[in-house]
Amino acid sequence: EAHAAIDTFTKYLDIDEDFATVLVEEGFSTLEELAYVPMKELLEIEGLDEPTVEALRERAKNALATIAQ
């Protein structure tokens, strides 16, 4: 499951495998979680700032909209 989540994140969020791995290690496994989890939870991840989190959430929401079509 972790590998599938990493693949999904790299494909749809335009991030590298290392960043995707950090997200999975922090407990995220779906685009929905990244799109809708409280921003505070993402900001608790070391190295993430508000602009990065906002961009990540926007990419996740856009990916979900694209997949739904």
Rank of each mutant, 00 (worst) to 15 (best):
L48W: 06
T8D: 06
G47K: 05
S29I: 11
R59S: 07
E41W: 13
A55G: 07
K11G: 03
A65W: 08
E46Y: 12
H3C: 10
A60Q: 01
L56H: 00
L34D: 01
T21V: 08
H3N: 10
R57A: 05
E44H: 14
L64E: 01
A55Q: 09
D49W: 04
E44M: 14
E33L: 10
E25W: 10
I15Y: 01
T52C: 07
G27R: 02
D7P: 05
T66I: 14
F19T: 09
E25Y: 14
A4T: 12
K11E: 05
L43H: 05
Y36V: 09
L13H: 00
A55V: 10
L31E: 00
E26N: 15
V24N: 03
A65V: 12
V24C: 04
D16N: 09
I15H: 01
L43T: 05
H3D: 09
E26R: 15
A4F: 11
K11S: 05
I6V: 09
K11L: 08
E50T: 09
E1L: 10
H3S: 12
H3Y: 10
Q69A: 14
V24M: 07
E50P: 10
R57V: 09
E25P: 01
E26V: 14
G47Y: 06
T21Y: 13
D16C: 06
E58L: 14
L31N: 00
L13G: 01
K11Q: 08
L64I: 10
A63W: 04
A35H: 02
A5E: 03
E44G: 13
M39S: 09
D7E: 15
A65S: 09
V53Q: 02
E17Q: 11
R57C: 04
E33I: 13
G47L: 05
A63I: 07
E17C: 08
A5I: 15
L56W: 04
T66W: 10
A5K: 07
F9M: 03
D7R: 14
D18I: 12
L56A: 01
S29K: 13
A2K: 14
L43P: 04
L64K: 02
G27H: 03
D18K: 13
R59P: 00
F28V: 05
D14V: 06
I45S: 03
T66M: 14
A4R: 12
L13D: 01
V37A: 15
L42T: 03
A68M: 09
A20C: 02
I6K: 06
L43M: 10
T52D: 06
L64D: 00
L34W: 02
T30Y: 04
P51M: 11
E54Q: 13
F28A: 01
V24T: 06
V22N: 06
A68S: 11
A63Y: 05
D14F: 14
T66Q: 13
L42F: 07
A60M: 02
L43I: 07
V24R: 05
D16E: 08
E1D: 12
Q69P: 07
S29N: 10
